[in-house]
C-alpha cells in the first residue's frame, strides 16, 4: 500500500577521477551539470527531471554507491515515515538541509543488505531542462550523447533480502513487482516499485554487503538504445552486454561501465505495474533467460562484477 514515497530522487556515486566521470555522464550519457559544491561533488540531472539534480558524483579512492534517495510527497509524510522506520527498529540518521545543495533535510538509514537510503521531501524545482512549462516544445536542443531521459532505478547486490524487503514493503509502501525464487522457494532477487514502473529499485542476493550493480537511465525507444550502443563504441567506452532484452521486466537494455568501473544501464520499454498486479516470478533454473532473454545463459560478469 502506498505510504507517500513518490519516486527515486537521487543517487550519489563514487568515482576515481572526477573529470573523467563528468565527461562520461555528460558528454556520453547526456546528463546536464547543474552545480558543484565545496566538497567537490558534482550535481547532474537528466533533461525531463523537474528537480535540480538526480545524480551526485563524489571523488573517492573506491568506486561504488554512497546512497540512493527517494522523494516523498511532503514534510508530513517524511515525519510519518521517519517515525515508522524508528518504530520498526531501523536506525535513522538526520542529514540536515543543504548538506546537498538546494535539497531539504534527509532521513538516512541502512537496510540489512548493507545499502544506505534516504527519504526527503524538498528539492529545488528547476523544471525540465531547456523547456518552458507553458506550451513546451517536444524536446530541448543541445542535448549530448545518449540524451538520457531520466534517472530510473538502481540494482543493488547484498545479503538478507527478506529483511530488506520487509522495510521497503511493510514500512515504505513499495510493492513486489517481480522476483526470482530458488528451488527451495527462497527469494534471491526482488524488483520493487512505488509507481507504475516495473521497478524503482531492485536487489539480488549476494554474500557481500552493500555492493552496487548499476544505476539505470531511461531512454524512449529501442532505436535510442541502439544509438547508445553506437556511442559506446565511438567513445571506446567499456561495454558489458547489449543491446538485448531482459526477461525480468522485459526491458530493452544495454549495460556499460563508467570510467571508474561503476556499471550504468540505459533502457527502454518493459512491463508496467498496478497495485492489483500479482508478482511475476522467475525461477533460478531459468535465471539466464530471466536476466538476458536472448542469450539465455548465466552471465558471469553480470553476477560478479560489482563496485
Amino acid at each position: 500500500m502506498k505510504k507517500g514515497v513518490m519516486r527515486p530522487g537521487h543517487v550519489q556515486i563514487r568515482v576515481l577521477d572526477m573529470d573523467e566521470a563528468v565527461k562520461h555522464y555528460t558528454d556520453l550519457m547526456g546528463l546536464i551539470e547543474t552545480d558543484r559544491d565545496d566538497q567537490g561533488r558534482v550535481y547532474l540531472k537528466a533533461w525531463t527531471e523537474v528537480d535540480k539534480f538526480s545524480v551526485v558524483l563524489r571523488e573517492a579512492d573506491e568506486p561504488g554507491c554512497d546512497f540512493m534517495g527517494f522523494k516523498v510527497l511532503d514534510e508530513e509524510v517524511l515525519v510519518q515515515l521517519e517515525k515508522d522506520l524508528v518504530d520498526y527498529g531501523v536506525e535513522v540518521e538526520q542529514v540536515p538541509a543543504e548538506e546537498l545543495k538546494d535539497c531539504g533535510r534527509r532521513v538516512r538509514f541502512t537496510v540489512p543488505s548493507g545499502h544506505a537510503f534516504e527519504l526527503y521531501a524538498d528539492k529545488l524545482y528547476t523544471g525540465k531542462w531547456g523547456l518552458s512549462s507553458v506550451n513546451p516544445e517536444a524536446w530541448p536542443r543541445g542535448l549530448q550523447g545518449m540524451k538520457a531521459v531520466r534517472f530510473d532505478h538502481c540494482l543493488f547486490y547484498g545479503p538478507e533480502l527478506a529483511a530488506t524487503y520487509d522495510i521497503f514493503v511493510s514500512v515504505l509502501g513499495f510493492d513486489l513487482a517481480e522476483q526470482v525464487l530458488d528451488p527451495e522457494g527462497t527469494r534471491v532477487a526482488q524488483f520493487l516499485t512505488v509507481s507504475m514502473k516495473e521497478h524503482d529499485i531492485a536487489f539480488i542476493h549476494h554474500e557481500e554487503k552493500g555492493k552496487f550493480h548499476h544505476a539505470s537511465f531511461h531512454l524512449e525507444t529501442w532505436e535510442d538504445v541502439l544509438r547508445a550502443a553506437d556511442l559506446i563504441t565511438m567513445t571506446d567506452t567499456s561495454i558489458d552486454i547489449g543491446p538485448t532484452r531482459h526477461g525480468l521486466t522485459h526491458g530493452k537494455t544495454i549495460y556499460f561501465f563508467d570510467p571508474s568501473g561503476n556499471r550504468n544501464e540505459v533502457f527502454c520499454g518493459g512491463d508496467y505495474f498496478y497495485p492489483d498486479h500479482k508478482p511475476v516470478t522467475w525461477k533460478t533454473e531459468e535465471l539466464g533467460k530471466a536476466i538476458f532473454y536472448h542469450d539465455r545463459t548465466l552471465n558471469e560478469r553480470f553476477m560478479t562484477v560489482l563496485t
Partner: peptide, 11 residues
C-alpha cells in the same frame, strides 16, 4: 578475467 575495465571491480 575481464570486468569493468575501469579499475573498480578488482576482477
Amino acid at each position: 578475467p575481464v570486468g569493468c575495465r575501469g579499475g573498480g571491480c578488482g576482477f
